[in-house]
Design a protein around this nucleic acid. Structure first.
Lengths: 144, 144
DNA sequence: GCCAATCTTGATTGATTTACTTGGATTCCA
DNA sequence: TGGAATCCAAGTAAATCAATCAAGATTGGC
Protein backbone atom coordinates (compact mmCIF):
# COMPACT_ATOMS: atom_id res chain seq x y z
CA UNK A 1 0.00 0.00 0.00
CA UNK A 2 2.83 2.41 -0.66
CA UNK A 3 3.14 5.59 -2.63
CA UNK A 4 6.38 5.76 -4.57
CA UNK A 5 8.82 8.62 -4.26
CA UNK A 6 8.16 9.28 -7.92
CA UNK A 7 4.48 9.96 -7.29
CA UNK A 8 5.21 11.97 -4.19
CA UNK A 9 7.66 14.16 -6.09
CA UNK A 10 5.18 14.51 -8.93
CA UNK A 11 2.54 15.80 -6.54
CA UNK A 12 4.94 18.22 -4.95
CA UNK A 13 6.17 19.48 -8.31
CA UNK A 14 2.62 19.99 -9.50
CA UNK A 15 1.89 21.85 -6.30
CA UNK A 16 4.55 24.41 -7.21
CA UNK A 17 3.32 24.65 -10.77
CA UNK A 18 -0.24 25.14 -9.55
CA UNK A 19 0.82 27.99 -7.30
CA UNK A 20 2.23 29.93 -10.27
CA UNK A 21 -0.36 28.76 -12.77
CA UNK A 22 -1.31 31.50 -15.21
CA UNK A 23 1.42 33.76 -13.90
CA UNK A 24 4.68 32.02 -14.72
CA UNK A 25 6.47 28.85 -15.65
CA UNK A 26 9.18 27.15 -13.60
CA UNK A 27 12.46 25.52 -14.49
CA UNK A 28 13.30 22.10 -13.15
CA UNK A 29 15.99 23.42 -10.81
CA UNK A 30 13.56 25.90 -9.29
CA UNK A 31 11.04 23.18 -8.56
CA UNK A 32 13.78 20.90 -7.29
CA UNK A 33 15.10 23.54 -4.93
CA UNK A 34 11.70 24.48 -3.54
CA UNK A 35 10.70 20.90 -2.91
CA UNK A 36 14.08 19.28 -2.21
CA UNK A 37 13.92 16.86 -5.09
CA UNK A 38 17.00 15.48 -6.90
CA UNK A 39 16.95 17.52 -10.07
CA UNK A 40 17.77 14.82 -12.62
CA UNK A 41 15.20 12.51 -11.11
CA UNK A 42 12.63 15.27 -11.20
CA UNK A 43 13.32 15.69 -14.88
CA UNK A 44 12.11 12.25 -15.81
CA UNK A 45 9.01 12.81 -13.72
CA UNK A 46 8.21 16.10 -15.43
CA UNK A 47 8.75 14.41 -18.75
CA UNK A 48 6.26 11.70 -17.92
CA UNK A 49 3.72 14.31 -16.85
CA UNK A 50 4.32 16.12 -20.08
CA UNK A 51 3.78 12.99 -22.16
CA UNK A 52 0.58 12.45 -20.20
CA UNK A 53 -0.63 15.83 -21.42
CA UNK A 54 -0.54 17.66 -18.11
CA UNK A 55 2.45 19.94 -18.69
CA UNK A 56 3.82 22.12 -21.44
CA UNK A 57 7.51 22.80 -21.73
CA UNK A 58 9.89 25.03 -23.51
CA UNK A 59 13.55 24.43 -24.16
CA UNK A 60 16.45 26.80 -24.32
CA UNK A 61 17.42 29.82 -22.40
CA UNK A 62 14.06 31.04 -21.18
CA UNK A 63 12.65 27.56 -20.94
CA UNK A 64 10.70 25.77 -18.23
CA UNK A 65 7.53 23.87 -17.43
CA UNK A 66 3.96 24.98 -17.00
CA UNK A 67 0.65 23.37 -16.16
CA UNK A 68 -1.46 23.03 -19.29
CA UNK A 69 -4.84 22.28 -17.74
CA UNK A 70 -6.61 24.26 -15.09
CA UNK A 71 -5.88 23.01 -11.56
CA UNK A 72 -9.60 22.28 -11.06
CA UNK A 73 -9.65 19.64 -13.76
CA UNK A 74 -6.59 17.61 -12.81
CA UNK A 75 -7.06 15.06 -10.05
CA UNK A 76 -4.39 13.46 -7.89
CA UNK A 77 -5.68 10.09 -9.03
CA UNK A 78 -4.72 10.89 -12.62
CA UNK A 79 -1.26 11.96 -11.56
CA UNK A 80 -0.55 8.90 -9.46
CA UNK A 81 -1.78 6.58 -12.19
CA UNK A 82 0.70 8.13 -14.63
CA UNK A 83 3.64 7.38 -12.37
CA UNK A 84 2.64 4.38 -10.26
CA UNK A 85 0.07 2.68 -12.41
CA UNK A 86 -3.37 1.61 -11.22
CA UNK A 87 -4.65 2.56 -7.77
CA UNK A 88 -6.13 -0.88 -7.13
CA UNK A 89 -4.24 -3.06 -4.64
CA UNK A 90 -4.64 -6.05 -6.94
CA UNK A 91 -5.09 -6.38 -10.71
CA UNK A 92 -8.45 -8.16 -10.65
CA UNK A 93 -10.23 -5.18 -9.07
CA UNK A 94 -8.68 -2.42 -11.17
CA UNK A 95 -11.10 -0.41 -13.27
CA UNK A 96 -8.47 1.35 -15.36
CA UNK A 97 -6.13 -1.63 -15.84
CA UNK A 98 -8.08 -4.80 -15.11
CA UNK A 99 -6.17 -8.03 -15.15
CA UNK A 100 -7.66 -11.47 -14.74
CA UNK A 101 -6.24 -13.26 -11.74
CA UNK A 102 -4.95 -16.69 -12.56
CA UNK A 103 -3.92 -19.24 -9.94
CA UNK A 104 -6.81 -18.28 -7.75
CA UNK A 105 -9.40 -20.91 -6.81
CA UNK A 106 -12.19 -18.48 -7.63
CA UNK A 107 -10.65 -17.35 -10.91
CA UNK A 108 -12.48 -14.09 -11.26
CA UNK A 109 -15.73 -14.99 -9.70
CA UNK A 110 -16.98 -11.69 -8.27
CA UNK A 111 -17.80 -13.60 -5.10
CA UNK A 112 -14.10 -14.16 -4.46
CA UNK A 113 -13.58 -12.86 -0.93
CA UNK A 114 -10.26 -11.23 -1.77
CA UNK A 115 -11.86 -9.46 -4.71
CA UNK A 116 -14.66 -8.20 -2.50
CA UNK A 117 -12.46 -6.62 0.15
CA UNK A 118 -9.91 -5.26 -2.26
CA UNK A 119 -12.65 -3.90 -4.48
CA UNK A 120 -13.92 -1.93 -1.51
CA UNK A 121 -10.43 -0.68 -0.77
CA UNK A 122 -9.88 0.35 -4.35
CA UNK A 123 -13.16 2.27 -4.38
CA UNK A 124 -12.30 4.04 -1.16
CA UNK A 125 -8.90 5.12 -2.47
CA UNK A 126 -10.26 6.20 -5.84
CA UNK A 127 -13.14 8.07 -4.20
CA UNK A 128 -10.63 10.29 -2.50
CA UNK A 129 -7.95 10.64 -5.14
CA UNK A 130 -10.24 11.02 -8.14
CA UNK A 131 -12.13 13.86 -6.46
CA UNK A 132 -9.10 15.65 -5.06
CA UNK A 133 -7.98 18.23 -7.62
CA UNK A 134 -4.72 20.11 -7.82
CA UNK A 135 -6.68 23.20 -6.80
CA UNK A 136 -7.86 21.47 -3.61
CA UNK A 137 -4.36 20.19 -3.07
CA UNK A 138 -2.69 23.57 -3.38
CA UNK A 139 -5.34 25.17 -1.18
CA UNK A 140 -4.58 22.57 1.45
CA UNK A 141 -8.24 21.69 1.89
CA UNK A 142 -10.09 18.54 0.91
CA UNK A 143 -12.62 18.72 -1.94
CA UNK A 144 -16.33 19.12 -1.28
CA UNK B 1 -0.78 0.98 -3.68
CA UNK B 2 -0.21 -2.72 -4.08
CA UNK B 3 -0.94 -5.73 -1.95
CA UNK B 4 1.92 -8.21 -1.93
CA UNK B 5 1.51 -11.83 -2.88
CA UNK B 6 2.51 -12.64 0.65
CA UNK B 7 -0.45 -10.81 2.11
CA UNK B 8 -2.81 -12.19 -0.48
CA UNK B 9 -1.71 -15.74 0.29
CA UNK B 10 -1.99 -15.04 4.00
CA UNK B 11 -5.60 -13.95 3.58
CA UNK B 12 -6.42 -16.99 1.49
CA UNK B 13 -4.73 -19.34 3.93
CA UNK B 14 -6.61 -17.79 6.83
CA UNK B 15 -9.80 -18.16 4.86
CA UNK B 16 -9.30 -21.92 4.77
CA UNK B 17 -8.39 -22.04 8.44
CA UNK B 18 -11.45 -20.01 9.30
CA UNK B 19 -13.70 -22.42 7.43
CA UNK B 20 -12.53 -25.33 9.55
CA UNK B 21 -12.13 -23.35 12.75
CA UNK B 22 -13.15 -25.35 15.82
CA UNK B 23 -13.55 -28.47 13.74
CA UNK B 24 -10.10 -29.31 12.45
CA UNK B 25 -6.58 -28.12 11.71
CA UNK B 26 -4.95 -28.07 8.30
CA UNK B 27 -1.51 -29.01 7.11
CA UNK B 28 0.44 -26.65 4.94
CA UNK B 29 0.11 -28.85 1.85
CA UNK B 30 -3.66 -28.97 2.25
CA UNK B 31 -3.88 -25.19 2.39
CA UNK B 32 -1.45 -24.89 -0.49
CA UNK B 33 -3.47 -27.27 -2.65
CA UNK B 34 -6.83 -25.63 -1.94
CA UNK B 35 -5.56 -22.13 -2.62
CA UNK B 36 -2.87 -22.84 -5.24
CA UNK B 37 -0.04 -21.45 -3.19
CA UNK B 38 3.61 -22.64 -3.48
CA UNK B 39 3.98 -24.75 -0.39
CA UNK B 40 7.43 -23.60 0.76
CA UNK B 41 6.43 -19.99 0.36
CA UNK B 42 3.24 -20.60 2.27
CA UNK B 43 5.27 -22.08 5.05
CA UNK B 44 7.08 -18.85 5.84
CA UNK B 45 3.79 -17.00 5.76
CA UNK B 46 2.17 -19.38 8.23
CA UNK B 47 5.18 -19.07 10.46
CA UNK B 48 4.92 -15.28 10.47
CA UNK B 49 1.25 -15.55 11.36
CA UNK B 50 2.13 -17.92 14.14
CA UNK B 51 4.75 -15.55 15.56
CA UNK B 52 2.15 -12.82 15.41
CA UNK B 53 -0.01 -14.93 17.69
CA UNK B 54 -2.75 -15.75 15.21
CA UNK B 55 -2.05 -19.42 14.62
CA UNK B 56 -1.15 -22.46 16.65
CA UNK B 57 0.80 -25.31 15.17
CA UNK B 58 1.69 -28.85 15.93
CA UNK B 59 4.59 -30.82 14.57
CA UNK B 60 4.89 -34.45 13.69
CA UNK B 61 2.69 -36.89 11.99
CA UNK B 62 -0.71 -35.53 12.90
CA UNK B 63 0.53 -31.95 12.80
CA UNK B 64 -0.88 -28.86 11.19
CA UNK B 65 -1.99 -25.31 11.75
CA UNK B 66 -5.07 -23.89 13.40
CA UNK B 67 -6.53 -20.49 14.08
CA UNK B 68 -6.01 -19.53 17.72
CA UNK B 69 -8.37 -16.58 17.98
CA UNK B 70 -11.99 -16.50 17.04
CA UNK B 71 -12.59 -15.29 13.47
CA UNK B 72 -14.64 -12.39 14.80
CA UNK B 73 -11.69 -10.84 16.57
CA UNK B 74 -9.07 -10.97 13.84
CA UNK B 75 -9.18 -8.19 11.26
CA UNK B 76 -7.69 -8.18 7.79
CA UNK B 77 -5.83 -5.02 8.76
CA UNK B 78 -3.91 -6.92 11.43
CA UNK B 79 -3.01 -9.66 8.99
CA UNK B 80 -1.78 -7.33 6.28
CA UNK B 81 0.29 -5.32 8.75
CA UNK B 82 2.07 -8.49 9.83
CA UNK B 83 3.16 -9.29 6.30
CA UNK B 84 3.32 -5.98 4.45
CA UNK B 85 3.90 -3.50 7.24
CA UNK B 86 1.85 -0.35 7.77
CA UNK B 87 -1.25 0.38 5.72
CA UNK B 88 -0.36 4.05 5.26
CA UNK B 89 0.85 5.06 1.80
CA UNK B 90 3.61 7.14 3.36
CA UNK B 91 5.44 6.95 6.68
CA UNK B 92 4.48 10.37 8.00
CA UNK B 93 0.78 9.48 8.15
CA UNK B 94 1.09 6.01 9.65
CA UNK B 95 -0.52 5.54 13.04
CA UNK B 96 1.05 2.17 13.79
CA UNK B 97 4.54 2.94 12.40
CA UNK B 98 4.90 6.69 12.19
CA UNK B 99 8.08 8.01 10.63
CA UNK B 100 9.04 11.63 10.39
CA UNK B 101 9.48 12.72 6.82
CA UNK B 102 12.76 14.41 6.21
CA UNK B 103 13.65 16.23 2.99
CA UNK B 104 10.20 17.68 2.78
CA UNK B 105 9.75 21.45 2.77
CA UNK B 106 6.98 21.15 5.35
CA UNK B 107 8.90 18.72 7.57
CA UNK B 108 5.98 17.28 9.41
CA UNK B 109 3.76 20.26 9.60
CA UNK B 110 0.25 18.77 9.66
CA UNK B 111 -0.68 21.33 7.03
CA UNK B 112 1.59 19.61 4.52
CA UNK B 113 -0.69 18.98 1.53
CA UNK B 114 0.75 15.53 0.88
CA UNK B 115 0.19 14.58 4.49
CA UNK B 116 -3.40 15.77 4.30
CA UNK B 117 -4.37 13.72 1.27
CA UNK B 118 -2.45 10.65 2.25
CA UNK B 119 -3.80 10.85 5.77
CA UNK B 120 -7.29 10.70 4.31
CA UNK B 121 -6.32 7.75 2.15
CA UNK B 122 -4.79 5.92 5.10
CA UNK B 123 -7.94 6.45 7.15
CA UNK B 124 -10.14 5.18 4.35
CA UNK B 125 -8.07 2.04 3.94
CA UNK B 126 -7.85 1.39 7.67
CA UNK B 127 -11.58 2.01 8.10
CA UNK B 128 -12.26 -0.89 5.82
CA UNK B 129 -9.51 -3.30 6.75
CA UNK B 130 -9.62 -2.78 10.50
CA UNK B 131 -13.34 -3.48 10.60
CA UNK B 132 -13.32 -6.43 8.24
CA UNK B 133 -12.92 -9.59 10.31
CA UNK B 134 -11.99 -13.07 9.18
CA UNK B 135 -15.58 -14.04 9.91
CA UNK B 136 -16.86 -11.37 7.49
CA UNK B 137 -14.22 -12.42 5.01
CA UNK B 138 -15.12 -16.09 5.08
CA UNK B 139 -18.82 -15.27 4.89
CA UNK B 140 -18.09 -13.22 1.77
CA UNK B 141 -20.00 -10.24 3.11
CA UNK B 142 -18.71 -6.87 4.28
CA UNK B 143 -18.92 -6.04 7.99
CA UNK B 144 -21.77 -3.98 9.38
C1' DG C 1 13.77 -47.15 19.80
C1' DC C 2 13.27 -46.32 14.92
C1' DC C 3 11.05 -44.29 10.98
C1' DA C 4 8.47 -41.25 8.46
C1' DA C 5 5.71 -37.24 8.38
C1' DT C 6 5.46 -32.76 9.81
C1' DC C 7 6.73 -28.22 11.46
C1' DT C 8 11.05 -24.83 12.25
C1' DT C 9 14.72 -21.99 10.88
C1' DG C 10 17.96 -19.68 8.21
C1' DA C 11 20.30 -19.06 3.91
C1' DT C 12 20.17 -18.39 -0.89
C1' DT C 13 18.51 -17.34 -5.40
C1' DG C 14 16.72 -14.85 -9.42
C1' DA C 15 13.70 -11.41 -11.05
C1' DT C 16 11.78 -7.10 -10.54
C1' DT C 17 11.29 -2.50 -8.79
C1' DT C 18 12.99 1.77 -6.88
C1' DA C 19 15.49 5.77 -6.77
C1' DC C 20 18.61 7.85 -8.89
C1' DT C 21 22.78 8.98 -12.34
C1' DT C 22 25.12 9.52 -16.66
C1' DG C 23 25.82 10.97 -21.10
C1' DG C 24 24.51 12.84 -24.77
C1' DA C 25 21.15 15.10 -28.31
C1' DT C 26 18.12 18.80 -29.37
C1' DT C 27 16.12 23.35 -29.11
C1' DC C 28 15.93 28.19 -28.13
C1' DC C 29 17.61 32.80 -27.57
C1' DA C 30 20.96 36.35 -27.59
C1' DT D 1 27.78 30.43 -32.41
C1' DG D 2 27.61 29.38 -27.67
C1' DG D 3 25.48 28.75 -23.49
C1' DA D 4 21.38 27.48 -21.10
C1' DA D 5 17.76 24.89 -20.90
C1' DT D 6 14.80 20.67 -22.06
C1' DC D 7 14.69 15.86 -24.17
C1' DC D 8 15.73 10.97 -24.08
C1' DA D 9 17.74 6.38 -23.57
C1' DA D 10 20.61 3.64 -20.70
C1' DG D 11 22.81 2.26 -16.82
C1' DT D 12 23.39 1.24 -11.82
C1' DA D 13 23.30 0.18 -6.96
C1' DA D 14 20.37 -1.12 -3.45
C1' DA D 15 16.24 -2.94 -1.85
C1' DT D 16 12.30 -5.80 -2.11
C1' DC D 17 9.63 -9.75 -3.80
C1' DA D 18 8.56 -14.36 -4.58
C1' DA D 19 10.18 -18.31 -4.03
C1' DT D 20 13.41 -22.31 -3.14
C1' DC D 21 16.57 -25.15 -0.56
C1' DA D 22 18.89 -27.48 3.02
C1' DA D 23 19.17 -28.91 7.73
C1' DG D 24 17.30 -29.42 12.07
C1' DA D 25 13.60 -30.41 15.74
C1' DT D 26 9.41 -32.76 17.16
C1' DT D 27 5.80 -35.97 17.06
C1' DG D 28 2.98 -40.26 16.21
C1' DG D 29 2.87 -44.97 14.83
C1' DC D 30 4.95 -49.40 14.72
Amino acid sequence: MKLSKKSEYALRALLELTLVHGKATLQRHEIAARQHIPVEFLEQILLALKRAGLLSSRRGMRGGYGLIKSPEEVTLGQVIRVLDGPLAPIGCVSKTAYQKCRDCPYTDNPRCPVQQVMGAVRDAIADILDHYTLADFAAGSPPG
